[in-house]
Computed example of a mutant assay.
Amino acid sequence: MLTVNAFGAPSATEPLVPLTIERRPVGAEDVLIKIAYAGICHSDIHFARGEWGPISYPQVVGHEIVGEVVEAGANVTKFSVGDRVGVGCMVNSCRECANCLAGEEQYCLKGNIQTFGGIDPKDGNVTQGGYSTHVVVDQDFVLNVPESLDYAAVAPLLCAGITTYSPLRHWNAGPGKKVAVVGLGGLGHMAVKLAAAMGAEVTVLSQSLSKQEDGLRLGASHYYATSDPATFENLANEFDLIINTVSASIDINAYLSLLTLDGALVAVGAPAEPLGVQVFTLFGNRRTFAGSSIGGIRETQEMLDFCAEHGIVPETELIGADQINEAWERVLKSDVRYRFVIDTATLTGAGA
């Protein structure tokens, strides 16, 4: 076992603290990754605070991980020591069900193994995430990170990037398509960048115009305030695809009315409360209301390569470990443009 430095939650209510955790020995199919940077996702906070159900503590979160391979198992063929790699939201799956065999491991019918808070099938222990100095991962769930992507900024692509890329690809965003993005936060700003790079005409729908300058800079052609009722009147039947990135409860029927014939509204944000959908709203224009998770490993690699080709990285703020608790408070206040990234070299204490 390898003892490594980490920063984790001792309970659902206490601030995160420095600690050490054990990583499993490097197996024949595994790589040991020295983590360089780890992104902070809102889901880290929900999970660590027990808001999605009871969990065991201490818990280290983080599923936006980039680093360097420092050891490879005897049967590893996909990576070599020194390679720059990434790890996203999952570290294993059953690999046998129809969805896994189709390259959609994120929809594993037996449930994929999450990067934190899952049960590792290789040792039976709870998986611990990327707010740490090292991680051991099966080679099949590791990604190549192109050298052209900014090392210190790339980590959030492993969650925010793929979460928005996957529905944009699935619903064929591209030239001739009008795409609206609801919300301009960590997910929304990536949706704007990616949809614009795909060639779509992009509109941001935000509660206010406070981030309008950012939205247009990131690639949007239009920006509207949803607090203005005229927005919904003027944009009725306008969009081929709407990506809803917000986790707050919204009037989903009002947004569905903005879809054109065969248009789709896809939720990637997850409100705690159910959303009331009027079926008659779907009847108009043969509209679709759908949801989307992350992507599979194949699609996540495709996303990273696409971002390298188009020079896309998230807008980030680099922080040290001593700023993580403050960063969490700022995430809860939506006071970040647009993603925090932890420099894991700042983790201190006993360990590797």
Rank of each mutant, 00 (worst) to 15 (best):
V70R: 02
V91S: 07
G320I: 00
L205P: 13
A272C: 00
L282Q: 11
Y151L: 12
P25S: 10
P314W: 12
P146F: 08
G291P: 06
K78W: 00
G263P: 10
Y255W: 12
F7K: 07
V81P: 04
L184I: 15
Q139W: 03
E29G: 00
I40N: 03
K110T: 08
S43E: 02
R217K: 15
A28N: 13
L265F: 09
L158W: 12
A264E: 11
A160V: 05
M303I: 04
E309A: 15
K78Q: 14
V179T: 14
G73S: 06
S80V: 10
D214Y: 13
G188I: 03
E273T: 15
D120Q: 09
L19H: 04
G161C: 05
V202T: 06
I35P: 00
G199V: 05
V331S: 03
G291M: 06
A180K: 06
T127M: 09
V179S: 09
R330P: 00
T346D: 04
D123K: 03
G311N: 12
F239K: 06
G183A: 01
L265M: 11
E64F: 13
S257F: 04
S43C: 01
G118E: 08
A191N: 09
G311F: 09
P10I: 13
E71S: 14
E22V: 10
K177D: 02
A254L: 13
S93V: 02
C100T: 11
G219C: 05
L209E: 12
V154S: 12
L218V: 02
W328K: 09
L16I: 01
K193D: 04
C100R: 09
E213K: 14
P314F: 13
L194E: 13
R287Y: 00
I324L: 14
V145A: 08
S221K: 15
V85N: 03
T288F: 03
G103F: 02
A327Y: 10
R169N: 01
F79W: 09
S56I: 01
Y165D: 09
G82N: 05
V246Y: 04
S210P: 00
V70Q: 04
D228H: 06
G88D: 05
C108T: 10
D120A: 11
V266N: 05
E299A: 12
Y338H: 14
Q301K: 05
K193F: 11
G27N: 13
Y37V: 00
L261Q: 12
R169W: 01
F7P: 15
L259H: 03
E51P: 00
L194D: 00
G118P: 09
K193Q: 15
L241W: 13
G295P: 02
A36G: 13
I119L: 13
